[in-house]
Amino acid sequence: MLSFLIKRLAGMIPVVLMVMVAVFAFVHLLPGDPARLVAGPEATAQDVAAVRTALGLDKPLPQQFLTYVGNTLQGDFGMSLKTRRPVVEEIGMRLMPTVWLTLFAMVWSVAIGLLIGVVSAVKRGRWPDYGGMILAVSGISFPPFWLGLLLINLFSVRLGWLPTGGYGTWQHFLMPSFTLGLGVAAVMARFTRSAFIEIAREDYVRTARAKGVPERSVIWRHSLRNALIPIITMVGLQFGFLLGGSIVIESVFAWPGVGRLLVDSVSYRDYPVIQALVLMFSLQFIFINLLVDILYVFANPEIRYK
């Protein structure tokens, strides 16, 4: 187990390095002079030169990269071009809204996905199965931003029950988290169904049935419990996709999170913020994947002892 952990952690080093090189190269791939971008369009040639020296952009690239890595490790991502405030502050105040949104979306996904998946598997080949799978493929194909607009139209504009957007009370959470979670719920439903069908073929399920265990207990105790291992893995992997989906959903509901910050920064060409956010998102995905791998090994003794 320990050797697996060490191996897996060591395997991350080149990946993290590759991401850092890519994010660092990002500014140099941009059309135009980075110093000019930072100094602003009205800056004189002298100002631009001053910015260049201040940011170390006149140094050779390898040295610049080392400086970049050093600054990143100290949590220094520079200043936002738009607000002229430290990027860390800008991201810091928007991080938690996105984390909460993703977590609540996952609750919807698991609740809806498991229910539809299990019902479809148990009633396999009959109309609840077809209904469930039609819902699932529709959920995968449904544009989440349109779903958001439809919900706003119904619950905010027409019924006036929920706020159209913003952040604060639990009412603010309902529509954004549901909108974000529905696509993943559809993926979970399909996955749960196939995991469940697989397990229904196992000997211990047949044995349970043969010795007269009630059907409900066979489903929820014997089958679901064993199907949980692949499902947990799936939940972990889908977190990354929820984070990605939050980028669009936050724009629909005026959610003050990092996703909307990213969209705004791209529109404004606020490169220090984009750079920091892309790095942050990337490290999150790498970390989530690592966590899933480790959990998977913990949950599955067969792999643990190999």
Binding site: G240, G245, S282, F285
Partner: peptide, 8 residues
């Protein structure tokens, strides 16, 4: 690349 959501 696969670990990333496409939109990002």
């Amino acid at each position: 690349l696969l670990a990333f959501p496409g939109i990002l």
